[in-house]
Design a protein around this nucleic acid. Structure first.
Lengths: 251, 251
DNA sequence: TGGAAACTGTGTCTACGGTACACAGAAGCA
DNA sequence: TGCTTCTGTGTACCGTAGACACAGTTTCCA
């Protein structure tokens, strides 16, 4: 069994418990919890083997008896945090996906470090994380989309949720970052000749509230609806405009 | 002038050159190029002050005479790499955005490390990076969308391009990661009872080619088209179905 | 019942990473 | 010429991940 398989087994398989030797004092559960506690409080960068071990009142090297390395520790933390997705639903696909997106966004808002853990190179994927994806694909079953299209649609939606969650985190975090955002607006304004469209868009009296999330979700779902509609038998089609209004203009 | 302002000035402003003292041997240009060379070859993680300085045959501490820290170095590298966006165009908005998305994707494919540099916490933003965003917002001018909606649409599209670029990089990079992807497929298949929708979608005979990028772009643009269409005066509307066919089913 | 084997937790070590600070030398201005 | 200012460098500190050997503990088997 190579390392990869071992890591997969840790996340997926039944923990193989040896019989000989001292009982382990720690557990994957407690280690993951300690890591999450630090990450929730101070972000993913503050999570080090040292810190996690310290929180458990052990030495860092003892952690290596439980996880193969930091990547695996973080995978455990993610898996511990995402939890189980909402149960399968029989609601219309559009409502299912809207609800899913909001739940996912709430998760990222509560644990922003998960965004950092998920982004970046090749990662270890746990069963719960995959279960969330399963819900999206399941919601799209039976509407004429191919398997690849259902997967692509899921990736599209997941990507948007992550994008906005990352953006909103930046806006929410302490003052220096918010200052930087304001400085960016100032830069655009002071280089309006180079960024006329941006300057105009940012100068328009906005609605105040942050609507990027819902805007994107609705555009994606509209796009999927159009595709699904085109796939329907001709006699069952109805024009897209007849659906319930989604116009979110403020005026 | 605080640090933040100094960093902004480095990316945006005219470099303030002092008169006294020795002429600087290095330049922001050469430093950025060295960093990019390393990142292109070995990824962003391989970029350290040591490595960059070594490539220039100087010591790492000398770099701190030019940049305030690593974050600023990376911002310079990004700004150096993204280059100027394509010039403004009078083409239809949909064509403009499709073209834009492909150019952006090509950039990420050529310099995958930019994805790592852009993701993560609050970053320094340069004028060229902002110019790319400008193009998207400009393409959406004059179609009845509010300023906030144009910005939201731009974020939506940028997010998708990044998402797929990150995903494609994982699939392209060396064999161990590709192996992990295959292992993931195997996991889904072997846990088919828990992931019936995923298993079904992945088991379907796929078209082979990776279509997630175009699929997402078309769905987003369809969604935007629907919104734009609803914003038009009633007599100028035409049903979404009458546009050129976008059906990308393989059969 | 007494090894022997297997396992846990620990202390020590290496090789990096970013960056603070003091200092020597070079270049321009007075 | 001498003062000021700037450059590049050497040394240092603290943090990181991880390798490795070792001592102590527990269970199995002869």
């Amino acid at each position: 069994m190579n390392e990869q398989d071992a890591a997969v087994r840790l996340l997926w398989g039944p923990p193989a418990r040896p019989t000989r030797g001292p009982k382990p004092a720690l557990s994957l559960e407690s280690i993951a919890r300690a890591g999450v506690e630090i990450a929730d409080a101070e972000g993913l960068a503050a999570v080090s083997m040292q810190r996690v071990a310290g929180l458990l009142a052990y030495t860092k090297m003892s952690l290596y008896r439980y996880v193969q390395g930091k990547a695996e520790l973080i995978a455990l933390m993610v898996e511990h945090t995402v939890g189980e997705p909402p149960p399968p639903s029989a609601a219309p696909w559009r409502d299912q996906l809207t609800d899913w997106a909001h739940r996912m966004a709430a998760l990222f808002a509560a644990h922003p470090w998960v965004l950092d853990a998920l982004s970046g190179g090749p990662r270890l994927t746990g069963p719960r994380e995959l279960a969330w994806l399963e819900r999206v694909v399941a919601a799209l079953d039976g509407h004429g989309l191919s398997g690849a299209e259902r997967m692509d649609a899921a990736v599209l939606l997941v990507g948007h949720v992550r994008t906005i969650a990352a953006q909103q985190r930046q806006s929410r975090e302490g003052s220096p970052e918010a200052e930087m955002l304001r400085a960016l607006g100032g830069l655009v304004a002071s280089h309006a000749e180079r960024y006329p469209a941006l300057a105009a868009a940012m100068a328009e009296p906005g609605e105040g509230r942050d609507n990027a999330f819902d805007f994107g979700v609705e555009r994606i779902l509209d796009g999927l609806a159009a595709l699904i509609d085109r796939r329907k038998p001709l006699d069952r089609r109805k024009p897209l405009d007849n659906r319930k209004p989604l116009d979110n203009r403020a005026d």
